[in-house]
Write a protein that binds this DNA or RNA. Sequence first.
DNA 1: TAGATTGTTAATCGATTAACAATC
DNA 2: TAGATTGTTAATCGATTAACAATC
Lengths: 210, 210
Amino acid sequence: MRKEKVSSAVIRRLPRYYRHLSDLHLAGTERISSSALGKSMGLTASQIRQDLSCFGEFGQQGYGYNVDKLRGEISDILGMNRGHTAIILGAGNLGRALLENFHFERSGFQLTAAFDVDSAIVGRTLSGVPVYHARDLEEYLRAHPTGMGVLTVPRAAADATAGRLVRGGVKGIWNFTNIELSVAGSGVVVEDVHFADSLLSLSYMISEAL
Amino acid sequence: MRKEKVSSAVIRRLPRYYRHLSDLHLAGTERISSSALGKSMGLTASQIRQDLSCFGEFGQQGYGYNVDKLRGEISDILGMNRGHTAIILGAGNLGRALLENFHFERSGFQLTAAFDVDSAIVGRTLSGVPVYHARDLEEYLRAHPTGMGVLTVPRAAADATAGRLVRGGVKGIWNFTNIELSVAGSGVVVEDVHFADSLLSLSYMISEAL
DNA sequence: TAGATTGTTAATCGATTAACAATC
DNA sequence: TAGATTGTTAATCGATTAACAATC
């Protein structure tokens, strides 16, 4: 029974399902039951069946799930085959690390451009991606409608840059700056990667264990 | 009423409280009520009071909370003042970006060393942190007991390196590799930063919005 | 004193788990 | 056919929200 509104707990598990199914497929596994998958992922079989039932019926009684078929279904659900485009804002250390090492295309995103203000890199091409001056962002977005912006600018420029992205029509922002963006209500979705928050959670858990 | 076992939902919110209270303090705000803090963070006042009550009583009826005092209490709860030490495993692009740009000390961690196998950087000092050869990890950990390891090695080396860290006595691993480490049950806590999972969640949300 | 706001107990809501008829 | 396993409904568990006496 499909759901119209899927809870964020379920959405957070979808990429994990995708990753585990990809690994299983790579290892040559053809089919798997919810209970076997649950055991390998540390979830209950019930939860897996309940999660999948938000999106449709992908299994077969008495058999389980075809690994590659389910992997494909989940990649569709995640929107990995929609040809999303992305640009990077801020080609400093972190932006460059993502640009040069992260495989955007494996998540279904095509990285089309990077923007910075440093004249030492503006005009160059890094890992096949052209670097433009940040002042030309609006012009670029008009000519090349873009789905998502990776925000790796310095803290001070974060909110202003996010606003420019939103006005330029992006649908989502992958936010690596350690502030909470004030673009709420604009219809744009923001996914935060807060390193500091993550580290502090770890600090808590380490400290508790002592 | 203090709790012995605090839920992970609460733990995830603590760093946000810390960040907001720090901003408020910087902005000169001396006191704040749970309802005002809730409004600015998008939480209910009830939730904030419920969360804090896991750790003690920090407010005053009719007044609210002293911003700087509460900030200090939360930093203690998070273990920010325990002098945790950390090392980085893998000084590639991402490891270097963290090494050179992330302020570990602001989260209470002292970064004492980095490890890599690349002879071009082994022996050098990056941002004040010495880079040793990965083969010397065990020797280092014996001489310098370390609280936490930042795992930024290539995927293929991830699980083996995690095992060496655990046997070397670290209490936690900050895992940037996109695999799930098999160190469960060792008493070591693992905090995952799965870029690809995060991006796929964003992909889902962008795709839904269309 | 009157108003504000806490910490805590009770009520509600949502997510996870268990149970089971349907069926491959 | 018999065994396995699904999708779904019901039961349980936990987290969030509401209410309120206590008190600054």
